[in-house]
Design a protein around this nucleic acid. Structure first.
Lengths: 368, 368
DNA sequence: TCTGCAAGTGAATCCGTAT
DNA sequence: AATACGGATTCACTTGCAG
C-alpha cells in the first residue's frame, strides 16, 4: 500500500495491479472508459470501398462474457474501495458492455444516480442498412454506496448554463475530431478518444477544484488533461507504454485555468423532428392529403410509414416533391401544404415542425 | 400446451403461467415493458432494486436483486422460446432495471441489435435538484439468438420518413398525455403508459402486417391497440383484472387502418436491369472497353456472355472489379466507366440503369 | 485571401439468395 | 447445411489542395 497516492502522474501498468495499491477512501471522482468487448467479426467496408478501421485491439479482446465480467468486477470493486464515501463514479459504454457493467455495479452496492446518454451528432453510419445507426453511448453515474453522505452535484451552475432549465440526461456532443484528436505518426493515436467537452461537463458538474479524480483507463489522457485544466488532481494509468508517453506529453501542454475562465464547450444541436415523427404522433395521420406549391395542382397521400405518393412516385416528402416539380432537389417541408383541421387553412408542413410536440398530439386513440 | 395461440384477446393471468402454454416458434415480435415495482414475498419493491430494507444489508440487496433476476430470466426465457428464429424482441426500461435485463438477455443468448434511447420532450423534472433530470428511457432490440435468420427491419421506409437519412438510435417522443392517456375513475390508469407513437415506430419498423406480436405485460394495452390499428395480431396478458378490462374496452374502439400498405413496399424497388440486359440490347456491346475508378488505369473488355475480363481475371463486373481493386467486394455498377458514344464522355455503368430516385438527393443545407 | 471539390474518418457485435 | 456469388450499402465533419 502506498503512503501517498501517486497524484498527477501517468502510471504505467495494468489497473488491476495498480489500483489495489492505492489508499482507500481517497478519491473524489472516478471516470472510467473500460474496454467495450466489441466482438467484431469480419471486415467492414464503406460503399466507396474504403475500409472501416474497427476496434480490434488486444486490449478489447476477451474470451467470454464471464471473463469480461470478472475483469469488470475487479476494477469496479477497487475503484469503489478507493472512493470516499461522498465520492461518485462515472462509466461509459455501449450496448456491448454497459448492461454487464450496470448489473455488476448494482451487485457491488453502487447506488445509481443517473444514466446519461451521450448523443453524437456525427456517428459512424450503419453502412449496410441492417440496423438503426448507433448514434449514442451510455454513461452511468453512481454513488459509492447507498450511504447518507452528500455527493457533489452543481445543480444551480448546470441550470444557469443550460438556459435556466435543469440539466437533463440527454447530452449532445460531437465525436472527438479535428485538432483535439490525438495523433501518433500522423495517424489516430487511440480509436476511442472521448471528447473533452464531455469530460468538462462531468468534472465541472460532479467535482470541485482540488478534488482527486481517478481514471483507471488513461488512453490518450483526456480525463487527466481536462482535470488538470480545471484545477483538479488526477490519478491515472495505462497498460500501454505508448499511451502513457502520449498522455504525459499532452498533459505537459495543458495549463490550469486561471479563474472561472469561460470554457469552450462544443455542443452539437439536437436533431430536428423528421417527417415520420409527425405521422407517428398523429399530427399528420396516414391518409392526409398534401398539396404542392406549384402551378398545376399536385396532391399527395401520406402513408403510414411517412412516405408519400403522388403521380406514381413514392418516397420521402423531398424526393416525391422533386419528382413532381421536375427539380433536382426539393425541401418538402417548405413545398407541401396541408389543411389545418381547426382553421381549415392551408399551411406549410414546416409550421408543424416548430410546434412543441405536446400540441401535436392526437385526441383519438390509435389511427382510424 | 395450447393448440392454437390465443390471438387478439386480452388474457387474464400472470405471464409466468400463461407464457409456458404458448406454442414455440410462433411469435414474430415481442414488446415488453416489465414492471420493477413488484410485490414479492409480501414486500413492495422500490424503484431502486437494490434498496436496502432490512438489517443485513448485503443479504437484502442480493435477495431482492436475485429475485428480480429470477423473474426476469423466466419471462425472457419464455418469450425467447415463443419467438420464431427470425423474430426479434424489444424491452423498455430505466436505469433501475435495464442493466439487469440486458445482462440476462445476453446470458440467455439473445443477440442485441441496437439499444435505442427514447428521449422525452416533456419529462418529469427532478424536483429536488439533486440529480440530472431523467429525460429518457432505454430500449433494447434483440434477435432471438445469434442465428443467421433474417429479421424484419424496414430500413428504406424508415429512411424515407426520416428526411432521407437513416434512422438513428435516438428517438424523440413526448410522454403519453392528453386524450391518449387512459384513465379510470377520472385518474391516470397506469403510471407508465407508453406513447402510441413509440409503439407505432417499433411495430412499423420491425414487423409486417399479419405478424403476431406478443406483449407479456399488457397494462393499458398500448401494444395491442397499435398492433390492431396496424393490422397485426396480438397476444397479451395482465395479472390485474382491472387492466384487462380497460385494455379490452380500449381495443374495442380501435379499428384497423384501411390505408395500410406494408412498409416493405418502399423497399421493393422496380427490378433493376442486370448487366446482361445491357449487353443483349446493345447498350454495351461485346468488345466495349470499361475503365475502373482507380488510381492506375485498368481496362476491361466486355464479352458476349456479359462477363468482363481484365488483368487475367474473368467474371462479373463485380467480381473482376473486386479482384482488380484488391477489395473483398465491389459494386461494379458504380466502379466501371464506359464512354458514351454520343457525348464521348466517360460515364458510370450505373447511368445506364437510369434510376430516377438516385437523381433526387436532398440538399442537406436546405433543412438547417 | 476565399471558394469549391476531393479525400479521409469515426467504439461496428453490419448481406441475401440461389444452388 | 455449406458454399458461391450478385450486388446493395453512409453521415457529418475536417483537412488539404486546386483554382
Amino acid at each position: 500500500m502506498m503512503d501517498l497516492p501517486p497524484i498527477n502522474r501517468v502510471l504505467h501498468g495494468d489497473c488491476l495491479e495498480i489500483l489495489p495499491a492505492l489508499p482507500p477512501n481517497s478519491v473524489d471522482l472516478v471516470f472510467a472508459d473500460p474496454p467495450y468487448n466489441l466482438q467484431l467479426r469480419g471486415e467492414l467496408w464503406r460503399p466507396e470501398l474504403s475500409r472501416v478501421v474497427g476496434v480490434d485491439h488486444e486490449w478489447d479482446r476477451f474470451s467470454s462474457l464471464t471473463e469480461y465480467d470478472d475483469f469488470t468486477r475487479k476494477w469496479l470493486s477497487e475503484c469503489q474501495r478507493c472512493l470516499k464515501d461522498s465520492g461518485t463514479l462515472w462509466v461509459i459504454g455501449s450496448y456491448h458492455n454497459i448492461f454487464r457493467i450496470g448489473a455488476i455495479m448494482q451487485e457491488l452496492g453502487f447506488w445509481i444516480l443517473n444514466d446519461v446518454i451521450w448523443i453524437k451528432h456525427n456517428p459512424l453510419p450503419n453502412l449496410r442498412g441492417t440496423r438503426f445507426c448507433n448514434a449514442h453511448e451510455t454513461l452511468i453515474w453512481a454513488k459509492k454506496s447507498d450511504n447518507d453522505k452528500k455527493y457533489t452535484f452543481h445543480y444551480q451552475a448546470l441550470k444557469a448554463g443550460n438556459d435556466d432549465r435543469q440539466m437533463r440526461s440527454d447530452w449532445y456532443f460531437p465525436i472527438c475530431s479535428g485538432g483535439e484528436r490525438q495523433t501518433r505518426n500522423g495517424r489516430t493515436a487511440h480509436p476511442t478518444q472521448k471528447p473533452e467537452g464531455l469530460l468538462r461537463r462531468i468534472i465541472n458538474a460532479t467535482s470541485n477544484p482540488g478534488d482527486v479524480i481517478l481514471d483507471p483507463f488513461c488512453g490518450t489522457g483526456t480525463t487527466a488533461a481536462v482535470a488538470k485544466s480545471l484545477n483538479r488532481s488526477y490519478i491515472t494509468m495505462d497498460k500501454d507504454e505508448g499511451y502513457v508517453g502520449l498522455a504525459e506529453k499532452r498533459l505537459a501542454a495543458v495549463s490550469p485555468a486561471l479563474l472561472n475562465e469561460p470554457m469552450s464547450l462544443i455542443e452539437s444541436r439536437r436533431p430536428k423532428v423528421p417527417f415520420i415523427h409527425l405521422v407517428e404522433t398523429g399530427a399528420v395521420p396516414p391518409g392526409t392529403i398534401l398539396r404542392l406549391k406549384s402551378k398545376e395542382l399536385v396532391e399527395a397521400t401520406v402513408h403510414g410509414d411517412a412516405t408519400i405518393s403522388a403521380k406514381g412516385h413514392r418516397g420521402s416528402i423531398h424526393k416525391v416533391g422533386a419528382l413532381c416539380l421536375g427539380t433536382p432537389t426539393c425541401n418538402g417541408w417548405i413545398n407541401w401544404y396541408y389543411t389545418d383541421q381547426i382553421s381549415r387553412e392551408s399551411k406549410l408542413l414546416d409550421c408543424l415542425r416548430s410546434l412543441p410536440s405536446n400540441e401535436t398530439k392526437p385526441n383519438n386513440s390509435a389511427f382510424d
